[in-house]
């Protein structure tokens, strides 16, 4: 299908971008990497008369990590840059992994983490790791800014709580505590040019005695939105994590998902994989947390 016609605005500041959004209210979309948006416009009939590009907005590509503040990912920071940022690689291995295996190198060079979240695809690869890390989004509009917890962000396939005139300025991810391990596993039939049929991210934080202080488990591609596995998290928190417990907790994740049958996989397969991947992720998290330098 042919691309619908639109005007492209290329503001240099966030203020200009916000002005443009409110000026064109209806029929305006934000353009960052364009990898999802342009596909939807060309293939799926999505229309917009105005695109406001974030690609020339100063400072929006920043990625920074400090022990005291954690990680701040700029609203236009691209997947590849996030994936190979030293702070991300060191402290957020699950996110680094997601950013360096999803889609293709070209798409990772173009697409942004914020875009991946804002599109609210159930299969968004960065969502599960960021849920596990307890990330929040900083959304700005002309009147001010607000912080939205990622776990409150998604509303359904393609739907989020972001208001039409808001822009994600940054994603904030708290610094992981000591004795913490995290991991992300995805499954698809092919290595690349692919969408995960199932994705599981986890984080385990141990106390000095080796008990689980905090556990976070999140699933991608197996429900209308990326979801947390609260039951599994509660099973583990406060417990001494032995293998049997990890297996049981991983198995319980199946109850947190509501997968569908589609071209990529059947619901039954997805359910089975949630368990397998959750168990693998938990084991890996535990090993990292116990060996835990960071």
């Amino acid at each position: 299908m042919a691309m619908p016609h639109f005007t492209v605005h290329q503001p240099k500041t966030l203020e200009q971008a916000l002005d443009l959004l409110s000026r064109h209210r209806s029929g305006v979309k934000l353009l960052a990497g364009g990898t999802d948006l342009l596909m939807k416009m060309r293939q799926a009939g999505l229309k917009a008369e105005h695109l406001v590009s974030l690609n020339r907005v100063e400072g929006l590509r920043t990625i920074s990590y400090r022990d005291e503040d954690g990680l701040v990912i700029g609203g236009a920071a691209r997947l590849a840059d996030v994936g190979r940022h030293p702070g991300v690689a060191q402290h957020y291995p699950a996110l680094a992994h997601a950013c360096s295996v999803m889609a293709t190198p070209q798409i990772r060079n173009m697409g942004t983490v914020a875009g991946n979240l804002v599109n609210a695809a159930p299969s968004a690869d960065t969502a599960a790791p960021l849920l596990a890390y307890g990330a929040s989004l900083v959304a700005v509009e002309r009147g001010g800014r607000r912080q939205i917890k990622l776990q409150d962000f998604f509303r359904g396939p393609g739907l989020s709580v972001l208001e039409p005139l808001e822009i994600v300025e940054a994603i904030r991810v708290p610094a992981p505590p000591a004795r913490c391990g995290s991991a992300y596993e995805r499954l698809s039939a092919r290595s690349q040019v692919d969408i995960a049929a199932v994705g599981v991210a986890g984080l385990l934080n141990l106390d000095l005695e080796g008990r689980v202080l905090r556990c976070r488990l999140a699933l991608g591609a197996v429900a209308p939105t990326p979801v947390r596995c609260l039951e599994a998290e509660q099973m583990l928190e406060g417990q001494a994590p032995d293998e049997a417990l990890l297996m049981r907790a991983g198995a319980s994740c199946v109850r947190s998902c509501q997968p569908i049958d589609d071209v990529r996989a059947s619901a039954a397969f997805r359910r089975a994989m949630v368990q397998v991947l959750a168990q693998r992720v938990l084991k890996r998290c535990l090993a990292l947390a116990q060996g835990g330098a960071s």
Binding site: G34, L51, T104, P105, Q106, N109, M110
Partner: peptide
Amino acid sequence: RSVSSCLTL
């Protein structure tokens, strides 16, 4: 950077 020029305006 390598990009897909079919998805770049």
